[in-house]
Simulated assay, not measured.
Amino acid sequence: MELLFFYLVAMVAVLSGFSVVMCKNPVNSGISLVMTFFCLAIFYVMLYAPFMAAVQVLVYAGAIMVLILFVIMLLNLGPEMMKKFRHGVIGGAIVSAIVMLQVMMFVNRGTVAGVQGDITKQRVLEEGHMQIMGLKLFTEFMLPFQITGILLLIAIVGALVLAKKDV
């Protein structure tokens, strides 16, 4: 039953991902992307990672997609602009098909690396996802975490400088 549910969600994820690329209306494309994000959240739940599923829904399907939809609506692309970029869809479909075939070939012919980490299923059940993630984030990955925050701050300041009108 679980395998059937996985295949159903995978089919919806692939179809909604295909719809993101093929929709003529950018708003419909954005809504299809939200559906893809929800399918990814379901995959996280199936992998026993409920925190990651919640973050997927709140951050990506919620906040990021609201921003993307606002930008799409503010740009107000007309039909003449949409016709201009139509030729890129065929090339993108061909490249995507080639990459998909390569990935399928690598997955079918590859072997599992067998790399084992220090985080086992037993440890996750004892300590919990959040404690392990927080410990790793604020000990081993503290410097990348801080650098990411600084880069986001620089991006916000840069966007404000570019958006500011000449005084």
Score class of each variant (00 low, 15 high):
104 M>W: 10
45 V>M: 12
146 Q>L: 15
61 A>S: 05
161 V>N: 02
38 F>D: 01
159 A>G: 06
22 M>T: 12
84 K>N: 07
144 P>Y: 00
7 Y>F: 15
32 S>E: 01
165 K>A: 09
139 T>K: 01
3 L>D: 06
122 Q>Y: 03
139 T>N: 02
133 M>G: 07
140 E>K: 14
39 C>M: 04
148 T>Q: 04
71 V>Q: 05
61 A>N: 01
14 V>Q: 03
91 G>L: 09
126 E>H: 06
78 G>L: 09
20 V>S: 03
55 V>A: 09
2 E>H: 09
10 A>D: 03
145 F>G: 10
124 V>I: 12
137 L>V: 09
84 K>M: 14
132 I>K: 00
125 L>F: 08
108 N>S: 10
143 L>M: 14
26 P>S: 04
150 I>L: 13
35 M>H: 04
19 S>R: 14
6 F>R: 14
70 F>D: 03
29 S>K: 03
63 A>F: 14
95 V>P: 01
157 V>T: 06
65 M>T: 01
167 V>G: 04
68 I>K: 00
8 L>H: 04
49 A>H: 07
92 G>Q: 05
47 L>M: 14
151 L>V: 13
55 V>N: 01
69 L>C: 00
18 F>E: 04
108 N>A: 15
25 N>S: 09
105 M>P: 02
133 M>W: 11
48 Y>L: 14
42 I>M: 11
132 I>V: 06
131 Q>E: 12
164 K>M: 13
13 A>G: 10
165 K>I: 13
143 L>W: 09
136 K>V: 15
148 T>V: 12
85 F>L: 14
116 Q>E: 12
93 A>Y: 05
164 K>S: 08
90 I>D: 01
120 T>K: 03
